[in-house]
Computed example of a mutant assay.
Amino acid sequence: MRLDVDGVTVEAAGRRIVDDIRLAVDSGAFVGLVGPNGSGKSTLLRCVYRALRPAAGLVRLDGDDVHALPPRAAARRLAALPQESSAEFDFTVAEVVATGRLPHRDRTAAHDREICAGAMERTGVAHLAGRGFLTLSGGEKQRVLIARSLAQQPRVLVLDEPTNHLDIAHQLDVLSLVRASGLSVLAALHDLNLAAAHCDLLYVIADGRVVASGPPQDVLRPDLLADVFGVRGHPVRHPVTGAVQLLFDLLPTTD
């Protein structure tokens, strides 16, 4: 399923937080949003997963305005993992993952259990099924919420900093899993090296606008890293995958 963001603008307190952003995620592609803190990435994603209605512009799923879809219909097409997720009640892990099945009308208990078990197995949380969600570590909670998103069986997955709280092994596991899922994925990523290794395309956002887009090796140039992120970046090639990776240091100061 194709996702299009067409001229989305968000305003608050007389200022444009997101300014006429246009981007596309082709069916099955993994597209990353990168940019400094406060650049508008999370605000844009909130418009995509219907938590926020833009002041202008449209978000389309295969041509349909996502904000015009009934909630259940939208949830069958698109799942989201926001940057901050909370639970008021101490559901078990299995119960949290099972909530991903709610948008599906034709579900049966046995079918739901099978799908949820598979999602928990794929994200490495099956052994936590009986644990209370509130007793988990931050990384464990994140993997459970990703399992819930997979159990939802969407066609588009929106992720806001999905590797938060994860150790390096689970960061790689989760992004590899998402990459192999076959879903259309739009993800805000803080770690530029993870973004370069896993994304087909990157959109760089600064001050609410897209300032560069394209394959990681074309976008993550030293001049852009200096202008947008305020660091000096040294691109190198990963010795196994060939993906561009970056070494960083501070920009030299001038007197």
Rank of each mutant, 00 (worst) to 15 (best):
V5A: 08
S137H: 10
G35V: 11
G130F: 05
V156R: 00
A109E: 15
C47K: 02
V10C: 11
R2C: 05
P82F: 07
D249A: 03
L224M: 05
V125N: 04
A119N: 07
A169D: 14
G230T: 10
L81K: 02
R50V: 13
A109K: 07
D173F: 00
E121T: 12
E95M: 11
G124C: 14
A188V: 02
G182H: 07
V34Q: 13
G7F: 01
D19E: 11
P216T: 07
C47T: 13
E114I: 01
V8F: 03
R2Q: 14
S137W: 07
E88K: 03
T123W: 01
G130E: 12
N164Q: 08
N193M: 09
E11W: 01
A196I: 02
D64E: 13
H198G: 01
R155S: 11
P239A: 11
D200R: 05
V125P: 02
V96Q: 04
L224K: 02
A126R: 03
S42L: 08
V59R: 03
M120Q: 07
L145H: 03
M1F: 04
L159R: 02
P71D: 12
P154N: 06
L78G: 02
Q152A: 11
G38Q: 10
L102D: 14
V31R: 04
R232H: 14
G7V: 08
A109D: 15
L194P: 05
F30M: 15
L23P: 10
A197Y: 01
S27G: 15
P216K: 06
P162Q: 12
L202R: 06
C116Y: 00
D20G: 05
D167I: 04
G38W: 05
G208I: 01
L134F: 01
A195Q: 02
A196D: 12
D90I: 01
T135R: 11
E84N: 09
D106M: 04
L81I: 14
V125A: 06
P239Q: 11
D218K: 06
L247M: 09
G118C: 10
G138V: 06
L189D: 09
S86D: 10
V48F: 02
P162E: 15
V204M: 07
L52P: 04
T43G: 14
R107L: 14
T123D: 13
A129R: 12
I168W: 00
L251H: 03
A119D: 06
L172V: 13
E121C: 03
L220D: 12
E95R: 03
G138Q: 11
D218C: 08
G100T: 09
A195M: 09
L3Y: 03
F133G: 06
S213R: 15
L194S: 05
D6E: 13
